[in-house]
């Protein structure tokens, strides 16, 4: 290594400061380094060493973004204690944590889209066919109250149940081998259901294709009449405000 041409001209500290940021160095230091091969070499080595430290140490002990996100989301399972301790001293991580918090607070409603729904958060309930009405559920009188399609002999009504809602369905023969689907909706806990206009959708389930919407209507006086439709597999949805009552595998 070349010796310094004037060891009293600059200190090691000044060389280190020059290596870190030469733009701030006093003119005397700049002048000496410009003339001294030994100090130029020393400055290069110090700069290289510092760059190496930065390269190897950069964020080495910071939790990965996945853990910071999990910490904010409340889903972090392991290493919670060590991350909390790290947060106390690392301002970069504190800053990133606040960014993640802001990002997660900017909630997109589409993330709530879990199931077929009329409004965000509505549940889809699969109605079950009842052999007998459970206690406390008001029995509708479908034979009397269902809207009549007026052709042929109707089949016996089938009663479906989902939570407190009862759905009576009846298939009525129509011309050309088609059928109507008649329905009546009631609820022991929500008598006003019969007064509301409730959206009703019927899908046909075709082979090798997703269910296709074939009819959409609203209830009137708690009843609806859809069709006529050809024989096939159908799926009915009744869209209440907070939930969807679905009847799958309707066949006629």
């Amino acid at each position: 290594m070349e010796p310094c041409i004037d060891p009293t001209a600059v200190t090691q500290e000044q060389l280190g400061a020059y290596a870190a940021d030469p733009s701030d160095a006093p003119p005397t230091v700049v002048g000496h380094i410009a003339a001294c091969l030994g100090c130029q070499q020393e400055v290069r080595e110090m700069g290289s060493f510092t760059a190496y430290l930065r390269q190897q140490l950069y964020r080495f002990d910071c939790p990965p973004p996945e853990n910071l996100t999990a910490l904010v989301a409340g889903t972090l399972e392991a290493a919670r204690g060590s991350i909390d301790a790290h947060m106390l001293t690392c301002t970069r991580c504190q800053e990133e944590l606040s960014l993640v918090t802001a990002a997660l607070a900017d909630h997109d409603p589409i993330l709530d889209w879990q199931a077929p729904t009329a409004v965000s958060g509505a549940r889809r309930l699969l109605a079950s066919l009842l052999e007998a009405l459970p206690p406390g559920i008001a029995a509708p009188a479908p034979a009397l109250n269902l809207r009549s399609a007026g052709a042929g002999s109707p089949t016996r009504p089938r009663i479906y149940h989902a939570e407190d809602v009862t759905l009576a369905l009846r298939v009525t023969p129509a011309a050309h081998g088609h059928h109507h689907l008649e329905g009546m909706l009631s609820s022991a806990s929500e008598p006003t259901l019969a007064m509301a206009e409730i959206p009703v959708r019927l899908y046909v389930q075709e082979a090798a294709a997703p269910p296709r919407l074939v009819a959409e209507d609203t209830t009137e006086g708690g009843t609806f009449l859809l069709g006529p439709f050809p024989s096939g597999h159908y799926e009915l949805e009744v869209h209440l405000t907070d939930r969807i009552i679905a009847v799958e595998d309707l066949v006629w």
């Binding site: 090691q12 500290e13 280190g16 400061a17 290596a19 510092t50 430290l53």
Partner: peptide
């Protein structure tokens, strides 16, 4: 101040080297 930062970091780098 910045001078103290430079002095301290230069010392530390020098000692490490």
């Amino acid at each position: 101040d910045i001078q103290e930062v430079r002095r301290c970091s230069a010392n530390l780098v020098d000692r490490l080297r």
